[in-house]
Design a protein around this nucleic acid. Structure first.
Lengths: 194, 194
DNA sequence: ACCTGAACACCGTTCAAGT
DNA sequence: ACCTGAACACCGTTCAAGT
């Protein structure tokens, strides 16, 4: 199970924590993942040092803000784990990752950073575990090339989300995603033993 | 023809300009494209305002530093323009873009920024014009899907370079690039009229 | 324990004064 | 024309003092 980041127990600390999350969510939505931390603290009616106490890095704050989105992605992976067509299930899930990443400005950047950051990251573990099951099944079915790892796949997908982010036309993301899916299919001559 | 950024004519100004370029090249190579501009000015033995005078934005400095790399990419595109196999020529060129982008830390980021930035950017125009010829020929030959644009393609390729940058194993970049190429082939049923 | 504002350090940008 | 260092603004991080 993925362990949500520890919340404070004392009443006032918890209240500040929640306010910071709400303010950060709004700031990230409006100004992107680079929104000034001081502004977030001020909007939350809290000292800037308090923000830093609860969230030691910007990445920690981002992952906390997008916690629900991330968990939702993980849950969706579980739902798809026993879908009849393994490759289609993987594709559908990846499409969701891109869609969420494009919709929630900052999520794609967070996921990308998580994939490149330390392996102990909660977010990185949760999402890559979720994807790993889908990928393995699609690979065992011989539908997806076996030489790609979850991490590479997620980096690639997030790179696409970032590259097409704030693009006026959503079909551009669809097209590029389509190209990726096309490329993921097992090349001729390469088959898993299944 | 692509017009290199205007150089100063006065002797002292030109000398400062060159020194800034050399210092910036070293700083970007060592500390990445986010290297502090003040450090670059100091290393060049020049006031920081002088740097800003010559290069109004960081992007302008980056494009000037990588000017030779960019021109080299454009020249290579010209060389490939009449290669016997259009699709192979395009692929070979794109592979070069990724290779250069991964080798020269900061170039990939510059190209990506150029593709997303204003259309008037010198760098953006030069590179996309170079690629456009190769892409068009491969599409007319019916080998590459017709629904992708140069800009999308370059964004995608640079996203890959960024995603695999400073990755220990170079074969990772190769793999992901291979996936992309696989995906670019014309899907069944879609053919250009030639 | 937890909070706070002020202090500090850093970096990009602008400006008044120089040649 | 061009250069310069200082001034300014901004933002992240740390700290001494408070409850």
């Amino acid at each position: 199970m993925t362990r949500p980041p520890a919340r404070p127990r004392r009443a006032d600390a918890l209240r500040n924590y929640e306010r910071l999350l709400a303010a950060a969510a709004e700031a990230f939505a409006e100004h992107g993942p680079q929104a000034p931390l001081d502004d977030i603290a001020r909007a939350a009616g809290v000292g800037n040092a308090t923000l830093y106490r609860h969230f030691p890095t910007r990445q920690a704050l981002l992952e906390a803000v997008y916690h629900d989105h991330i968990q939702s992605l993980c849950r969706r992976a579980e739902d798809l784990a026993s879908a009849p067509q393994p490759a289609a299930a993987l594709m559908s899930w990846l499409k969701g990752v891109v869609a969420q990443g494009s919709a929630a400005h900052g999520l794609a950047a967070s996921l990308m950073a998580a994939m490149e950051g330390p392996a102990e990251s909660w977010c990185r573990k949760a999402v890559s575990d979720a994807g790993a099951a889908l990928l393995a099944r699609a690979q065992e079915a011989g539908e997806i090339r076996i030489d790609i790892t979850v991490r590479q796949l997620l980096k690639l997908v997030n790179a696409i989300a970032l590259a097409t982010e704030d693009e006026p036309k959503p079909e551009e993301a669809d097209l590029i995603f389509d190209i990726l899916l096309n490329g993921l299919r097992t090349p001729s001559g390469q088959r898993a033993e299944a």
